[in-house]
Design a protein around this nucleic acid. Structure first.
Length: 347
DNA sequence: CTACCTCGAGCTCA
DNA sequence: CTCGAGGTAG
């Protein structure tokens, strides 16, 4: 099926391409890169909350890195729109930030009352980051805010590619108990004092990224290799049920599963598929990864959740029903019936 | 075997 | 958002 280029025509007659000729959306934001650049700009912002739709930027910071060294920095508070609150007596007060944010960042209403607005700061910020790769910790958080305000105030599409320290850290240091910036800095021996101001957080992020980079180099790890995913199907990382060996030697030759070939479909509720397969093998049976002409039992788990399953029947189930019609010795078992069967020591 | 799809779990940012 | 598990098509 060909998709074709998708185009919308605006009221003024201009056109915008929504997707390319392979059906892929034209990306407006940059790409999240799996790489270790030596030239990039670290970015961090402080905001009044988590949601770009309701919350505002109150500070931006950036560090320009060339050949792994800091060569320039950018920092500015930003005065947000603010809001009014009324006490019980109806007296109104004006605020830029609430107590929680002031406590967290140290940024006060007083400081913001003297700060420049986005209109002043954004053009200088754009000039500073230019078209650099942007490094950040959970960098999408910052990009989402920055993208929206740049579009709103300057009609500017922020399309710089990004490198996310959070994403890299999860892969490179999977044993960390979590991957908050604080945790990463502690584990890597990076000083994280005075955190939660944007320029300071840029420094901490930069130093953690440098440590991560050194770790990869010292251990001859190519970052791209860590992200190469083996598909779960096939003989890669996926467990081939046929290779499971029995853990015992004596079998009850009267058991229905003795020498029988079993196939599983769907997700089992009460145990993992490989454990169920082990039970089959321990009873003297065999397991298969798919329904074949050898299959004697098909054990059904749940596949309600799988949208590729149209009418509640997986492809394995459909194939099994067809084989039964063709006279194959094949029985379809629900998960519960399967457990009843394996619990019976003999018949 | 390769390529792609879908869902749920778990998580980080101020 | 990202990733792994499980599944489909050729």
């Amino acid at each position: 099926m060909s998709v074709g280029v998708s185009i919308i025509v605006n009221e003024d007659g201009t056109m915008e391409i929504l997707q390319d000729n392979k059906g892929r959306p034209i990306r407006e934001k940059g790409e999240s890169l799996i790489s270790i650049p030596s030239n990039y700009t670290v970015v961090d912002i402080e905001t009044t909350g988590f949601d770009p739709r309701y919350d505002e930027i109150i500070e931006v910071g950036a560090l320009k890195i060339r050949e792994g060294k800091i060569i320039d920095q950018f920092e500015s508070l930003i005065q947000p729109d603010g809001y009014y609150l009324y006490d019980d007596d109806g007296n109104e007060s004006f605020y830029y930030v609430d107590e929680f944010i002031t406590e967290l960042t140290g940024i006060t209403n007083e400081m913001l009352s003297k700060a420049p607005t986005l209109e002043k700061v954004l053009p200088r910020f754009i000039e500073f980051i230019n078209d650099d790769i942007l490094l950040g910790h959970n960098v999408h958080f910052d990009i989402n805010f920055l993208y929206d305000v740049l579009m709103e105030h300057l009609d500017y599409k922020l399309s710089n590619d990004m490198v996310d320290l959070l994403r890299l850290s999860r892969k490179v240091f999977p044993d960390f108990k979590n991957h908050k910036l604080e945790t990463i800095s502690i584990n890597l021996g990076v000083d994280n004092s005075n955190a939660h101001r944007s320029l300071r957080d840029c420094e901490i992020t930069y130093q953690c990224f440098s440590k991560l980079s050194e770790h990869l180099k010292a251990n001859n790890i190519i970052i791209e290799d860590l992200f190469k995913r083996k598909y779960s199907s096939g003989s890669g990382k996926h467990l081939d049920l046929r290779t499971i060996e029995a853990e015992n030697e004596d079998f009850d030759e009267e058991h229905l599963l003795f020498n029988a070939y079993c196939t599983f479909t769907g997700k089992l509720e009460k145990m993992e598929r490989k454990d169920a397969a082990q039970i089959v093998v321990n009873l003297g049976g065999h397991c298969l990864n798919s329904v074949t002409k050898k299959t004697n039992f098909l054990i059904l788990g749940n596949f309600d959740y799988n949208a590729t399953v149209k009418d509640g029947k997986s492809s394995k189930l459909k194939k099994a029903e067809q084989l039964i019609l063709n006279g194959q010795d094949l029985k379809i078992l629900s998960e519960d019936v399967f457990y009843d069967l394996v619990m019976e020591k003999s018949y």
